[in-house]
């Protein structure tokens, strides 16, 4: 515990502009980074050591530096951008379609008994089920190209989006509704002006789930059915025994995953500024 130790006055260190002091600060920063990421460094260090020791086949277990170099190369030459664009297109294409349909459907379910009666059991069964199982079916219907992939993404994303929008619409404070009704809002206007914004925090929960799902499903679809994209390239690299290249794809998709998670958080903060979020902890 750091409580007992004298506290280093950080402001003083960064305030003095002498080069020596700055070098110390940089060194301290570096040391803190190494201490913090100790386990990660250990992990990669062990990986590198084992891979270079000659105990394992380099095809199975290439050194991490080789994979990183391959990643750097594919970034520098730009030949990673084409598959990346394809994957993005499929994931976000399917997601966008699902957003429009899912949110509308969910809100309608929350407001109209008949719509709710018809769709509730379908959504209830579909939500926890692994939709990816429908992939062979989509291939049968739409072939190996973009259509099948976009549609399987759409199918997978629509369930969380609808369900969360539905719950959001159902949990709208009835006093908002009464207030709007007493001011003459009806039908679609009521849906758009009151139900949608009030349900937005829930809808965003659904969006964050669907965003991750869209990338996962697009990636799997590419791995299974081919047709370009990061998933296809990764499987191809694995089959061609170009393991470092497979890892380069893994790094890329992880970075993409990180970027989308952050983007969703940023969007949430931007759009839901009026909503008091419960701190997770």
């Amino acid at each position: 515990m750091a409580q007992g130790k004298p506290r280093v006055d950080v402001d003083m260190a960064s305030g003095s502009r002498e080069p020596a002091a700055r070098r110390w600060a940089a060194l301290r920063w570096l040391a803190a980074g190494v201490a913090h990421y100790f386990s990660v460094l250990l992990f990669f260090g062990l990986w590198e050591f084992v891979a270079r020791s000659g105990w394992v086949n380099p095809w199975v277990f290439p050194p991490v530096t080789v994979s990183l170099a391959e990643w750097g190369r594919s970034l520098a030459t730009g030949d990673i951008f084409h598959p990346m664009g394809l994957t993005l297109l499929r994931a976000l294409g399917g997601l966008t379609m699902a957003l429009g349909v899912g949110i509308t459907l969910g809100l309608l379910m929350g407001r109209y008994r008949l719509v709710e009666w018809f769709f509730e059991p379908l959504i209830a069964i579909g939500f926890p089920a692994p939709k990816i199982a429908f992939l062979p079916l989509f291939v049968l219907w739409f072939g190996f190209f973009n259509t099948a992939k976009v549609l399987i993404v759409f199918t997978s994303c629509i369930f969380p989006l609808t369900l969360y929008a539905y719950h959001g619409a159902r949990s709208v404070d009835r006093f908002y509704l009464w207030s709007a009704l007493s001011k003459g809002s009806r039908g679609f206007a009521l849906l758009r002006k009151v139900v949608l914004p009030a349900a937005l925090p829930h809808i965003f929960d659904g969006f964050q789930v669907a965003l991750i799902v869209s990338f996962i499903v697009a990636f799997v679809a590419e791995m299974v059915t081919g047709g370009g994209g990061l998933g296809f390239e990764m499987i191809k690299a694995a089959q061609d025994a170009e393991t470092p290249r497979a890892f380069a794809m893994l790094f890329t998709i992880s970075l993409l995953g990180y970027g989308t998670i952050k983007l969703a958080e940023w969007l949430r903060a931007l759009l839901l500024f009026w909503h008091i979020e419960h701190e997770a902890h």
Binding site: Y37, F219, M234, I235, A238, L250, S254, G257, Y258
Partner: peptide
């Protein structure tokens, strides 16, 4: 750090590995 690092990896991407 390991958890933070592995969190954004889309899990099916580890299948080929």
């Amino acid at each position: 750090p390991l958890v933070v690092l592995s969190y954004p990896i889309p899990k099916p991407a580890i299948i080929p590995v």
